[in-house]
Design a protein around this nucleic acid. Structure first.
Lengths: 206, 206
DNA sequence: GTCTATATTCTGATAGAC
DNA sequence: GTCTATCAGAATATAGAC
């Protein structure tokens, strides 16, 4: 039981522990015993509160998906901000989020692939993006480029790839670049400013 | 037992099945029974040939790492090709590889995080890249830009992110873009040409 | 609500016949 | 080499005392 657990209800302790363990190790590699231990409670209590490993996992999965979507939801449909501002907000907010929770993307991408049944998210992200202010602004920007407009998905792939990939691949990147965790965080800070610039440079090539 | 298994030795059948199941589901979610079933043989035979789940996994892990590294190894240290050509080769070769084996990156990134002990690769990729012809050419290109040279890791992150991320996130991207598998492959084909162009545009902003 | 003890199911691995 | 049957241990879940 860590200091964080003081003053928390048992249910909250279990959820906090489950969030940590599931998000780090994924569903299959997680044992309910690990969660109970991290929560500082007995294994039986976990089932008393949540009935099963799967039900507890579903809760964490929803939480994580929601957290991941929240960043983009509030930005994408703002009619009053420019494309530039939107790119800056998305990059900055995601990098802040992932710096705090670096395991989030690998968790979501892995579990989404392994349990496509649980994919409430697809429709969610689809609804959020399709016909949004951002997509319209992207289409306009693409046309203002040199010539052939690229498929808007290319932009999404580039933007999200540049933001998310470093966190997914951080162990390799730390090794390649001979840098430590703090230097990595510093690079991510730089990327908050750089990614929007790079994306705009890319838009001009189309 | 699929058609592919005809004319294969038992050992090869098991390896082929293990490659498929491990790479799709990861170590923890894979049951040796699944592998045996896909191989069309009995569970006992698996242990007869490979002694344990872990030993069989280690083999597949090595295979996959090797396959993933092979692409970059032969390109990165070629003294006779320009930076442009190297970028083009890396993008084209990786996109070809990942179109055939879309689960490769998620497998490697996940298992690498969960079993850092098995990380023969870190030193491997490090050795391959550090001081390579590619890194020198990148450093030169960065200096020829507008002003402040960025950390070379930024370029690696951007290049690999743009190449790999779409394959990792393909389920979401298919949903967002309302496209099917073939349209996705078409987009990936386009990216073979586009990514080098985009990377060069990014280099000019630094 | 919380614990200990136990039931139940699953899974990796082996024994032994052929 | 290959199979069936089975074991041993692990992991989820529950029973029942407090």
């Amino acid at each position: 039981m860590t200091a964080k657990n003081i003053d928390k209800s048992t249910e909250e302790k279990i959820i906090t522990a489950a969030r940590k363990v599931f998000t780090e190790k994924g569903y299959a590699a997680t044992r309910t015993r690990d969660i109970a231990e991290v929560a500082g409670i007995n294994l039986a209590l976990l089932n008393y509160y949540f009935r099963s490993k799967e039900k507890l996992f579903d809760l964490i999965m929803m939480e994580n998906l929601h957290q991941f979507m929240a960043v983009v939801k509030e930005i994408v449909n703002d009619q009053n901000t420019s494309l530039d501002k939107k790119l800056e907000s998305i990059a900055a907010n995601y990098i802040d989020l992932l710096t705090e929770q670096p395991n989030l993307p690998l968790f979501i991408l892995t579990e989404m692939r392994h349990h496509p049944q649980k994919l409430v998210m697809n429709m969610d992200v689809k609804k959020t993006l399709q016909g949004s202010a951002l997509m319209k602004q992207l289409a306009i920007a693409a046309k203002e480029g040199k010539g052939v407009a690229q498929h808007p998905l290319h932009l999404i792939m580039n933007l999200m790839g540049m933001i998310i990939f470093p966190f997914i691949a951080s162990p390799i990147l730390l090794a390649i670049g001979d840098i430590n965790d703090n230097e990595f965080k510093q690079l991510m800070l730089e990327r908050k400013k750089l990614i929007p610039i790079w994306i705009k440079a890319i838009l001009k090539t189309s």
